[in-house]
Amino acid sequence: MPGVFADRILTVPNVLSILRLLGVPLFLWLLLVERADGWAFVLLIVSGITDFLDGKLARLLDQSSRLGALLDPFVDRLYLVTTLVAFVIRGLIPWWVAALLVGRDLVLTLTLSVYKRRDLPPPEVIYLGKAATFALMSALPWLLAGQMDWAADGFGRAFGGALLVWGTAVYLWTGVLYTGKAVVVARALPAVRHRSA
């Protein structure tokens, strides 16, 4: 029955999300302290695969949960932000690219109050935004692969750079679309006044 696992914590998708969460400090240690780019690359790939699997398994096993609905996007954003910051520290991407991407998420976080004050759910996901996130999360391993000493390092830098440019442009555009939706809602509907008990 759909929703039977809605309040469960220990589900396969949630375990995968928690493992990805634990992988964040390990990734930072590998990239910034050990400079073990090969292992950091492997961890990024594994994180991407488990991110894909947890959503699929949640639907396939009927293990969607409230925790999963919060945890999965939180871990996605945390991985993206920490990876961007680490890449800036290592000089793999310009600081302003990371600032644009993180700034977009900060602006959208602020727009959520528009929906909350009107007792509305957050806006539906724009699938173009999912494509942009996928492009960015794919760009980062390729950029890292471009730093390693192997036959395809030049391809890794070029392909990763192209994905980064495309992903950044679309990510910012979907940010504009989400912000526009919030503005329309704010103008069309008054905020709900809650009576104090």
Rank of each mutant, 00 (worst) to 15 (best):
M1E: 03
P2C: 04
G3R: 03
F5A: 11
F5S: 10
A6C: 05
R8A: 12
R8N: 10
L10R: 14
T11Q: 05
P13N: 05
V15G: 05
L16G: 08
L19N: 04
R20S: 02
L22N: 02
V24T: 01
V24A: 04
P25T: 00
V33D: 14
E34R: 07
R35C: 05
A36C: 11
D37L: 15
A40V: 10
F41K: 06
F41V: 00
V42C: 15
L43E: 04
L44T: 09
V46G: 12
D54A: 07
L57S: 01
L57H: 01
L61P: 01
D62W: 03
Q63N: 02
Q63I: 05
S65G: 02
L67K: 09
L70Y: 14
D72C: 11
F74T: 15
Y79Q: 15
Y79S: 13
F87G: 03
F87P: 03
G91T: 00
W95A: 13
W95Q: 07
V97Q: 15
A98T: 10
A98S: 09
L101D: 04
L101M: 09
V102F: 15
L110A: 02
L110M: 02
L112C: 09
L112W: 11
R117F: 01
D119I: 08
L120P: 03
L120K: 14
P121W: 05
P122G: 13
E124N: 10
T133G: 10
F134C: 10
F134M: 12
A135M: 11
L140C: 12
Q147R: 13
Q147I: 00
M148D: 15
D149K: 08
D149E: 15
W150L: 09
D153P: 02
G154K: 08
A158E: 13
A158P: 04
G161Y: 05
G161L: 03
L163I: 14
L164R: 00
V165I: 14
V165Y: 09
V165F: 12
V165M: 10
W166G: 08
T168S: 12
A169I: 15
A169Q: 05
A169M: 08
L172R: 15
L172V: 06
T174H: 12
V176K: 13
Y178N: 09
Y178F: 14
V185D: 02
A188T: 11
P190Y: 11
V192A: 03
H194C: 11
H194M: 13
R195T: 03
R195G: 09
S196N: 11
